[in-house]
Simulated scan of single mutants.
Amino acid sequence: MPRHLLMRLRAPLVAFGGETIDSYGVIRDFPALSMVTGLIANALGYDRADFALHDRLQARLVMGTRLDASGARLVDFQTAQLGKRDEAWTTRGEPETRQGGEDSYKSPHLRHREYHAGLDALVAIRLEPAHEQPTLDDIAVALDRPKRPLFIGRKPCLPTTRVFVDMIDADDVLDALQRAPAPAQSEFHFQLPEGEGALRHAQSRDVCDERNWKTGVHGGWRRVLEGSDPRATASPKQSNSLERSA
Rank of each mutant, 00 (worst) to 15 (best):
F151K: 02
L122Q: 07
R148K: 12
T135S: 15
Y105L: 00
D137A: 15
D137M: 08
S104F: 10
A140V: 05
E128C: 09
L150N: 07
V141L: 10
D103Y: 07
Y115L: 08
A124E: 02
E128W: 01
R148Q: 08
E132Y: 07
K106C: 06
D144M: 15
T135K: 05
A142H: 03
D144K: 11
I139D: 06
G118M: 08
E128Y: 04
R145C: 13
A130V: 15
F151A: 10
V123Q: 10
E114C: 07
H131K: 12
E102M: 05
H109Q: 09
R145K: 15
K106V: 15
L143W: 03
I152N: 01
A140H: 03
H116I: 03
R126P: 06
D138F: 05
P129A: 06
K147T: 09
L122N: 07
L119S: 13
L136M: 05
A121P: 06
P129N: 04
E102Q: 11
D120L: 09
L122H: 08
L119I: 14
D144G: 13
H112Q: 12
K106F: 10
D144A: 13
E114Y: 01
P149E: 02
Y105T: 00
R145F: 13
E132P: 02
P146D: 03
P108L: 12
L119G: 13
R113D: 05
